[in-house]
Computed example of a mutant assay.
Amino acid sequence: MDFDPKTLTYNADGLIPAIAQDAVSGEVLMMAWMNLEAVRRTLDTRRVTYWSRSRQAFWIKGESSGHVQELVDLRVDCDRDCLLALVNQTGPACHTNRRSCFYTSVEDGSERELMAPMV
């Protein structure tokens, strides 16, 4: 069956959440937004492309930092309103230079940092 990104369910702003997960380790790396064109570009180039809400522009992960996300597989959830990008991640995925954006744990009402920035 051919995939048409127009069949996805985008929010009122034309965006869909995309979770990046390491294709080998299974570690959840980050979440960002895609629009229809970002999905198309990601599939065409195999370099994960997101839509920056703050800059109102496309950004290819790693374009300026070198911390590239190479697409291994793109998966659609059952409601077609969320994407899972299985990626080969080069370097840290988070703009804080951590491997994952999910580096803070909330336990008993307190936050605890789980990982330090990568050097």
Rank of each mutant, 00 (worst) to 15 (best):
G66S: 08
T104E: 08
R99M: 12
A93L: 06
L71D: 01
V76E: 11
C101K: 09
V87P: 03
Q89T: 12
T96M: 11
G66Y: 03
L83H: 08
C101N: 02
G62L: 15
Y103L: 05
T104I: 15
I60N: 12
D77W: 03
Q56P: 02
Q89M: 09
D73V: 07
H67S: 14
R75I: 02
F102C: 07
P92M: 04
Q89E: 06
T90M: 05
R80M: 07
T90I: 15
Y103S: 05
I60D: 10
Q89G: 08
L84W: 00
G62I: 13
N88R: 15
C82N: 09
R75E: 10
C78P: 11
Q69E: 04
C78A: 11
S65L: 07
G66H: 06
R80I: 04
H95D: 02
P92V: 04
G91L: 11
C82Y: 04
C78I: 04
S100G: 11
H67I: 01
K61Q: 05
Q89Y: 15
F102I: 14
H67F: 07
L84M: 13
L86P: 00
L74F: 06
Y103V: 06
C78N: 02
G62M: 15
N97A: 15
R55Y: 03
S65D: 09
C94S: 14
L86E: 12
D79W: 01
G66E: 11
T90Y: 14
L71P: 03
E70A: 15
E63P: 13
T96C: 14
R98K: 14
L83Q: 00
H95S: 13
F58M: 13
R75Q: 15
N97L: 12
L71Q: 01
T104H: 10
S65V: 05
R99D: 00
Q69A: 14
C101L: 08
R98W: 00
L83Y: 04
C82D: 04
R55H: 09
A93H: 08
